[in-house]
Computed example of a mutant assay.
Amino acid sequence: MLDFLARAAMAGALSSEDRKAPKAKLDADAILARLSLTSRLYAEPCPFRIGDLVTPRADSKAKGAGEPHVVIEVLSGEMFPTGGQWWSPPIVLREPTADVSATSSSQYGQVLDIRVARMSEGAALAYVVESQDFEAWTPGHEEAWRAKLATAAAGPQPLTLAEAVSSLRDRAAGKEVKADWKEGDTVEIVPEPHGAKPPMSVEGVHVGIVQRVDKSDGTTHVLYHAASTGKIGTGWMRNADLKKWGPKAAPEAISA
C-alpha cells in the first residue's frame, strides 16, 4: 500500500515536461549549504497551512519549480484551527523489508506530510508530498510564472512570407543541405548546433559519428560528446550544422 502511495505521489508530481528539465549544477559551497538546509527542514515542523500557495524548491526532488501549488491538507495529526476535525498523521513510507532495492530507493523513508494541488492540462491534480521539498510562493515566483505563460501564449516568433515559403520549399525538396556522409562516418559539428546540445571541443574540433541520415528533411542523427557533461549522447542535427571530417590536405608550398 505504501509503495503504491509513493508511486502515485511521484507520478502526480511529475509532468512530461518536468521530467526533461535539467537540474542546475552546484558548486562545493552550494552543495554543503543545501545539505545543511535539508537537515534543518527535516528537523523542523511543517511551516505551511491549508490554503498557502507554495512551489517546489528548484533544487529538490519535486518537479514543477516555479509553478503555483496550493496546500489542501496538512498531515500533522493536529486539530484543524477552526476546530472539529482531526487530520491524518504523516504517511511514512517505511514498511519493514529486507529488500535492498527498496531501502536504497530515495522514496523509501519519505514522510509525506502535506497534500497539494496544482493545475495540469486544465485539471486540478492533488497528491501528497514532503513539505521540505516546497517553499512559500512569492511575488518573484508569480512574476516569472506569468511571464512564462505569456511567452507560451504568444507562440513561436512569426516568419515573413518569403522565409516561410523558402523553408517549406527546401524541406519539401530535401534541399536544405545534402549529406555527403553515411552511417559510421565522422563529421565535424558547429559549436552551437540548432536544436541540439553543444558538442564538446576536443583539440579545438567538435566531432561526432553518424548513426543515421534522414534524406527526407536534411537532418542527421549524430553520436557525440556533450559539452555540458562530457558524456556521450545522441541528437538530430541539421546537415547545415555538419561537415564531413577527415585529414586536411597539406597546404601547397609557396613558390619562391
Rank of each mutant, 00 (worst) to 15 (best):
A250Q: 05
V202Y: 14
A62G: 07
S106G: 11
A250D: 05
A65I: 03
A123K: 14
S104A: 14
V207P: 06
L149A: 12
P68V: 02
G83C: 03
G204W: 00
A58E: 15
K178Y: 08
Y42W: 11
W137E: 02
G155W: 05
D29K: 15
G83M: 03
A13C: 15
P191D: 07
A179M: 04
D217S: 04
M200W: 05
A8Q: 14
T82E: 15
A179F: 05
T82S: 14
P47G: 07
Q211Y: 07
R118G: 02
Q211H: 11
H194W: 11
A62P: 02
V128S: 09
M10G: 09
D29F: 12
E78Y: 08
T186K: 14
A250G: 02
P22S: 06
D170C: 05
T219I: 01
T97S: 06
R115F: 14
A8C: 07
S167L: 05
T219N: 01
K182R: 10
W181M: 01
V129I: 10
P81E: 06
A43N: 10
A256N: 08
R34H: 11
E188L: 09
S131Y: 07
P251S: 05
A24R: 14
Q211R: 12
E17N: 15
D113P: 00
E78S: 06
Q110H: 09
D133G: 09
T55W: 06
G218P: 01
I254Q: 10
A162H: 08
I50M: 13
G109W: 10
E163I: 00
L5R: 06
V213H: 04
D185P: 08
I50P: 03
G109S: 04
S201T: 01
K61D: 11
D180F: 00
S166H: 08
E44P: 02
S88C: 13
L223C: 00
A173V: 06
K215M: 08
A123M: 13
P56W: 04
P89C: 15
V92E: 09
E143F: 11
V92R: 07
E142F: 12
G174K: 00
A9I: 04
D3A: 15
P198D: 03
D214A: 02
E135Y: 02
S167I: 04
G109D: 03
P193C: 04
Q157R: 09
I72Q: 00
P156Q: 01
L14P: 09
S105V: 02
